[in-house]
C-alpha cells in the first residue's frame, strides 16, 4: 500500500515547492507517470494505470483532478486506491488533489494494458482474455506457471472480487484467474 516516497525523486523535474505551484509546472503526462508507480493495494504487481482504472488526469488551476472508475461495485480496494493516489501525488508536492469517481462507461478488463497482463501472468495470475463480456463460459484459460491449456475452474470466485480460482491439470498447481468482464 505504501508509496515509495523517495523513489525516482531525481527523475521528476525539480521537486516543486509545497506552495501549490506544482500544477503549473507539471504536465498531465508527468502525473500519469507518477500514477504508474501507485500499486493496486490487493494486487501490488500491477499499478492503477496498468489496470485501466485511471480514466483521466486534469489540472484546474493548481488543483489536480484524477478520475478513477471502480472495478467491481463493492471492491473494498476502491477507498484505499483513492487514498494511495492522493498520498502519492501529495508526496510529490501536489497539495491540492481531488480524486473523483466515474461509473460510466463501466470498467472492463479490456482496459488492462498489455504490460499489465504480462505483469499479472508473471505474478501467477492468469490475465483476462481480451474481448470483455460478462460470464465465464469462455475460451480455455492458460496456466500462468506452465502455459498448459488443460485447466479447470475450481470456483467462480477467488480471493478478491475480480478473480476466480482455477487449477492446472498438467503442473497440478492451483492459480487465480482474473475474471473477464
Amino acid at each position: 500500500m505504501s508509496v515509495r516516497e523517495t523513489h525516482d525523486a531525481r527523475a521528476f523535474p525539480a521537486r516543486p515547492a509545497r506552495s501549490g505551484a506544482a500544477g503549473k509546472r507539471a504536465s498531465a503526462g508527468d502525473i500519469w507517470r507518477l500514477l504508474e508507480d501507485v500499486p493496486d493495494p490487493e494486487i501490488p504487481a500491477v499499478s492503477v494505470v496498468d489496470l485501466g482504472i485511471v480514466r483521466g488526469v486534469e489540472q484546474a488551476g493548481d488543483e489536480v483532478v484524477v478520475t478513477v472508475t471502480p472495478t467491481y461495485s463493492g471492491c473494498p480496494a476502491t477507498a484505499a486506491i483513492r487514498l494511495d493516489i492522493e498520498k502519492a501525488l501529495r508526496a510529490r508536492g501536489f497539495d491540492r488533489v481531488r480524486v473523483e469517481s466515474r461509473l460510466a462507461p463501466p470498467w472492463t478488463t479490456d482496459w488492462i494494458s498489455a504490460e499489465g497482463r504480462a505483469k499479472l501472468r508473471a505474478y501467477g495470475i492468469a490475465p483476462p482474455e481480451p474481448g470483455g463480456c460478462a460470464g465465464t463460459a469462455a475460451a480455455p484459460v492458460a496456466c500462468p506457471r506452465c502455459g498448459s491449456l488443460r485447466t479447470e475452474r475450481v470456483s467462480q470466485f477467488g480471493s478478491t472480487p475480480c478473480k476466480a480460482q482455477h487449477r492446472c491439470a498438467d503442473c497440478l498447481e492451483p492459480f487465480d484467474r482474473f475474471k473477464r468482464i
Binding site: Y72, S73, G74, F157, G158
Partner: peptide, 18 residues
C-alpha cells in the same frame, strides 16, 4: 469456495446498494 463466493456476492450487492 462457497464461503468465498457468498462473501463476494454480498460484497457486490452492498456495493450496488451504496
Amino acid at each position: 469456495e462457497e464461503d468465498i463466493a457468498l462473501a463476494n456476492t454480498a460484497l457486490d450487492l452492498i456495493g450496488q446498494a451504496k
